[in-house]
């Protein structure tokens, strides 16, 4: 083979050429892996935890909503919109919870992938009767309960789904996402076993959950409860018709306790408690957002302990 003679070059030009070819090939094969991690902006504290568990070290998570904020009244600010635009992924809870999401999608254009974690979960639909007690008028009109995170099996499905979606956007880490989701799924299995064992202490005929608003549909479906929400659409707007129905159900079923909610005004519930003469339990976390329980595990453990102690009378 004839020598390639370039005056004054030597072997360094060949090395540089080879490195250039390899680098270019790598870039086109895996364009995303040239970045350190996927940037994921999240719209709900529970999906923030989900993103961290599934993404692991391959994601950087930017929560746009912090634990303790009101999920029904949250609207992204211009700073939030800028963060969302610069992220690779916007991870929403979905099922119509984020009423501003269609508008936000339009603003983002195609630059950010939008994933709705709740798409993986079979919906609880509100019947015409239950819609009276939905969390707010917009969600009552939509007839789908958006509070899917109350279902542990739902969260497991969401983890698998989100892992698959992350993997489409970052194929080089597809297996890592799947592994993380499976691992977290095993931890959620243990949480589910513990939850079912605790709840089995409550007789099935006594499983009535009296709460401020209709946020526990998925929990009730999963653990064999019937929901009796008290408040109507919003504070100060509790209809006497709603109250009468709720009081009737509580008396008919001899429900012993009602549960207020963290971050909610307990006025309507307290008046029911006083009228019917039942106990006031500890506060539940209804909307998945509490500064005292920022992880999914902490949130579920809190609620289950409160419900079991409230309905069994145990301390």
């Amino acid at each position: 083979m004839p020598k390639l003679a370039i005056k004054g070059s030597g072997p360094s030009i060949w090395k540089a050429l080879i490195l250039l070819i390899i680098g270019t090939g790598s870039f086109f094969a895996n364009p995303v892996s040239s970045r350190a991690a996927l940037e994921v902006a999240t719209l709900h504290p529970m999906v923030t935890d989900l993103a961290r568990e599934v993404g692991g070290k391959h994601v950087i998570v930017f929560p746009l909503m912090n634990p303790g904020e009101d999920i029904h009244n949250f609207r992204p600010s211009s700073t939030d919109m800028a963060k969302a635009r610069s992220a690779d992924i916007l991870l929403a809870s979905g099922k119509g919870l984020e009423l501003y999401l269609p508008r936000l999608r339009q603003t983002l254009g195609g630059s950010t992938h939008v994933i709705e974690a709740g798409n993986a979960v079979r919906s609880v639909k509100l019947s015409a009767k239950d819609a009276l007690f939905a969390c707010c008028p917009e969600h009552a009109a939509g007839s789908i309960d958006p509070h899917w995170w109350h279902s542990i099996s739902g969260m497991k499905r969401a983890a698998t789904y989100v892992a698959r979606e992350f993997g489409k956007i970052d194929p080089s880490n597809k297996e890592a996402f799947a592994y993380n989701a499976k691992n977290w799924g095993k931890q959620l299995d243990k949480l589910e076993t513990w939850a079912k064992r605790e709840i089995s202490k409550i007789p099935r005929s006594k499983r009535y959950l009296v709460t401020a608003h209709a946020a526990f549909g998925y929990f009730c479906r999963e653990f064999g409860f019937r929901s009796i929400p008290i408040a109507g659409p919003s504070e100060g707007n509790v209809s006497s018709k709603y109250l009468a129905i709720a009081i009737g159900e509580i008396r008919k079923n001899s429900v012993p306790v009602a549960f207020p909610e963290v971050n909610a005004n307990p006025r309507a519930l307290d008046s029911i408690i006083k009228t019917v003469g039942i106990r006031r339990g500890k506060a539940l976390i209804a909307d998945g957002s509490a500064s005292s329980a920022s992880t999914y595990r902490a949130f579920m453990e809190h609620n289950i302990k409160v419900i079991v102690s409230g309905l069994t009378g145990a301390p």
Binding site: R197, S200, P203, R204, S205, G224
Partner: peptide, 8 residues
């Protein structure tokens, strides 16, 4: 006494 009985 229950009609639906849940055991662990």
């Amino acid at each position: 006494a229950e009609q639906e009985i849940e055991f662990w």
